[in-house]
Simulated scan of single mutants.
Amino acid sequence: MNLTGVLFFPVTPFTASGELAEDVLAEHIGRGLEHHPGAVFAACGTGEFPALSEAEHAAAVRVAVKTARGTVPVFAGAGGPLGAALAQAAAARDAGADGLLLMPPYLAKGTPEGFLAYVRAVAAILPTVIYQRGSVVPTPEQAVELARVPGVIGLKDGLGDIDLIQRTVLAVRREIGDDFLFFNGLPTAELTMGAYRGIGVELYSSAVFAFAPEIATAFLNGSDRLLTEFYEPLVRLRSKVPGYAVSLVKAGVRLGGLDAGPVRPPLVDAAPEDVAELARLIEHGRSL
């Protein structure tokens, strides 16, 4: 699967009473599609994957597929307990999704052989990108074995260990080939893309695309001032509170005039003063 450009990770909107707001999600994704992302990753980290029921997850993926109408690939989050991951993968397949972003199996940490079996079971359902973070930190040799699993098409790095990801990229491309996908999955990935491009990783997930796609697209086309005057201050703001990597994105969507509702526990909504700072940053980023 050939992915290019900015990868769009939409939020999952909720109503004031806490239900999934499918119509708002469709509008949110539709607005993003106007800026031509390389793919849509629904019900993933920015979409509060751990807070969704299986029914909500399935509904969010259906909305994403229906809204995209085949114009770009749609990936769905999957992971956690094996039974849940298999159910999420099957629901995504039935909805017409093109692939999965496989989150770590929370709490349980087995051997590399055990994780290989976990991946094999899920990747048999849909093409799968493995998310390297938390308990999932394969060695380059283990990454090669994972890349050999039928259906595994890529690795998203959420760790930020440049030495490890460089050795992993070299090992997988040597043993598997250049078609295997790698992308930078760190929060506010634009800040670190200079380092990732230096080791041959061009793809990245963009949280900013969810609330300011014109800024994210301008950065993709090259803007040093955006890096220093928008992204670096945004990362400082994001680092103030655990979970702001999602909460600020949802606040940004609301600032854009789309009521995406609150985040769900254990996340907390951004404080009013931080939302005001975000609004100032967005205005400045657009002026650049």
Rank of each mutant, 00 (worst) to 15 (best):
M1Q: 10
P10C: 10
T12M: 06
P13F: 04
G18H: 09
D23V: 07
V24G: 08
L25S: 08
A26V: 07
G30Y: 08
A39I: 06
A43F: 05
G45D: 07
G47T: 08
S53T: 15
A55H: 10
A64Y: 04
V65L: 06
V65P: 11
F75I: 06
G77K: 08
G79Q: 06
G79C: 09
P81K: 10
A85L: 08
A90P: 00
A91P: 11
A97P: 05
L102H: 08
E113Q: 12
A117E: 13
V129G: 02
L146Y: 15
V149H: 03
V152W: 02
I153M: 01
K156A: 11
R167K: 15
L181T: 14
F183R: 00
A189T: 10
E202M: 02
L203T: 10
Y204V: 04
V208D: 09
E214D: 15
A216S: 13
T217W: 00
D224V: 08
D224A: 15
R236L: 12
R238N: 15
R238L: 13
V241E: 14
Y244F: 14
Y244C: 09
P266K: 08
L267C: 10
L267M: 09
V268F: 04
A270F: 02
A271R: 14
D274N: 12
A276D: 12
A276H: 04
L278S: 06
G285L: 03
R286D: 00
